[in-house]
Write a protein that binds this DNA or RNA. Structure first.
Lengths: 340, 340
DNA sequence: AGGAGAGATTGAACCGGTTCCAAATCATTA
DNA sequence: TAATGATTTGGAACCGGTTCAATCTCTCCT
């Protein structure tokens, strides 16, 4: 089918290949008559330039790569959507690398920095080790982290410690003292690295500030997911002295907590307050109180920053940090504890 | 940085480029001693083959393209996840084309069939016109449709008419007669082409079969989205004789209906039955009765079929149709109408 | 030792674009 | 009309791989 090459067009139009190339890239120095001749030949042969060949000789791909762990999670999807809007503006295509295992992550961190398939790389949520960061910095293409961090690489992040603090403080201000925290696994160097841990720090800070002692039994961790969160909530609520409020490290996990409360016939927020994190779309419908983080915006900013780095290599030397604001969104799942 | 080419390696190892190439692709006829020499040179120079150059000379990209309208919708995301599992097995990468406007769709349908960026193309939800289909069939790479249809192209689909029928029949069997249907815009030749229309046909069929007259005021359409659905539900429930059951063409829209019911203080399912379509993840948490369609599986099957077509070009001549089963999932949002 | 045949190796040609130097054409002016 | 300079144009060389025909090296056998 489309085995028509630029040389075929040149022959058909009776010109040289250079001229055809110039017409395609509408370079100014082509006489009008010639241009027309070539354009006709192109149409007649139904010629379309071969993208890969073009990329090779240009040394530019017009693709950007995105590494997204669990891109099915609502948060990743929202970010991706943000990225997409910027890419569309720049006429860039998106190569998506999903990551669901540690092995896959390592494989990608090994191969991607060569960056011969794209002109820029966006990494979501996975904070690189010093060694990987080193490779990324020295690699041929710019990299921007979104929801992940490393001092040597430009990044778009939120202050997770502050987020954890805000959520916990909100519960304390309502009068709660028995406040639990559930999250995905902190030690996992893999998923959502750091975020849960940092939020936990914020949680601890707020408690300490209020003079509320930390109770180890009020902290649970498990794989991310509604089901696991539901299980953890049940465990917490079965304690001799159950918490009056639960802070879940993500809205998805908060849904599991809501579910558990419902199953136990506990009224929310009268008997149990629940606060999430992220403010994903469905949180509004569920009337879930949560900490809003600008997910869509993080994608937009990350992509925009990446394009800046691509245009101006100098920016790569001096990593930029964009810190996005958090906001408490009070809906209907938090209230003062029973009896206040 | 990585400007090391295969010729540099050849020189360093004191062999010809052909030999280096053979080592890279571990072709058998290389003597052990030579192989070792080359491998050392590769390591010493930190050489990595240039993907794009490889693709050009091989005429193969190891990418597959996916066109997904509104890939942020939970249904698209689930499908994508299915696709991803198959790609990972085959070591293929994923180039994602999001579509949110008619212009973008047309642009993609114009440029993608050339298929020089990938070895196979998956199109979600957008049924091609005869003209586009013609181009796809004659194009250089195989194409598979998922949740979209054209007689000349292999596809993975569900029976939307039957789905509409099942949902409506369920409500009728419960005793409902005042059954409304809401959907996204039928005439839109663009989004979710056909599905809503076909489900509407199933709805009509079921009503007719039960001898229930069709009431035009019980059918509403608007852009896809929770908010729009909520508005439509309010309109329906404000009618002098409001419906006792609402069938929403997607779970997302069903959420809007749930919201409206809640706002009006209508008990679900006692005063209003609601049934959705898709069975997205959150439907379970919401206890939404719905028609389950195998979203994840559709991605898996679509990708698998595509790989078959890529391996065996003969399969392209004879388009395959894979019809996935639908299933009614009864949860807690449907019940007999009040007073039965 | 000489020769046949299998196996290993080389490097030019190719994939399909872009670029750039040199050559050709055109327009302008003396 | 010839000379001069500005525009256009042609096409070889290049991007970095793979491939294949030709050549070189071994082994093994008589």
């Amino acid at each position: 089918m489309s085995e028509v090459t630029i040389r075929d067009v040149a022959k058909a139009a009776g010109v040289g290949v250079g001229t055809v190339s110039r017409v395609i890239n509408n370079h100014p120095s082509v006489r009008e008559a010639t241009r027309k001749k070539v354009e006709e030949a192109i149409k007649a042969l139904n010629y379309h330039p071969h993208t890969i060949a073009r990329q090779l000789s240009l040394g530019k791909t017009s693709n950007i790569g995105v590494v997204a762990p669990f891109f099915i999670r609502p948060a990743s999807v929202e970010r991706l959507r943000g990225v997409e809007t910027i890419l569309a503006e720049h006429k860039y295509d998106l190569i998506l690398y999903n990551v669901e295992t540690k092995e896959r992550r390592d494989e990608l961190f090994e191969t991607l920095p060569r960056g011969d398939m794209f002109d820029g790389l966006l990494i979501f949520t996975l904070s690189p080790s010093d060694e990987v960061a080193e490779r990324l910095v020295n690699g041929p293409i710019p990299v921007v982290l979104v929801d992940a961090s490393h001092p040597r690489i430009s990044r778009v992040i939120i202050d997770d410690v502050q987020g954890g603090y805000m959520a916990t403080k909100h519960l304390i201000d309502l009068g709660h003292e028995r406040i639990a925290y559930i999250s995905d696994i902190l030690e996992s160097p893999f998923e959502h690295v750091g975020a849960s841990t940092l939020r936990y720090q914020g949680y601890q800070q707020a408690l300490q500030e209020a003079g509320i002692p930390l109770r180890p039994e009020y902290y649970r961790q498990d794989q991310h997911g509604v089901l696991q969160a539901r299980k953890m909530a049940h465990d917490l609520l079965s304690l001799p002295q159950p918490p009056t409020a639960i802070f879940a490290a993500s809205d998805t996990q908060a849904i599991g907590v809501l579910q558990a409360a419902q199953e136990r016939g506990l009224a929310v927020p009268e008997q149990l307050s629940i606060i999430g994190f992220d403010d994903i779309e469905i949180a509004e419908y569920l009337k879930l109180t949560t900490i809003h983080q600008p997910l869509f915006t993080s994608g937009v900013e990350g992509a925009a920053l990446l394009f800046q780095c691509m245009e101006d290599p100098a920016r790569r030397r001096q990593p930029t940090e964009i810190l996005l604001p958090l906001r408490l969104v009070e809906r209907a799942t938090t209230a003062p504890p029973a009896g206040m």
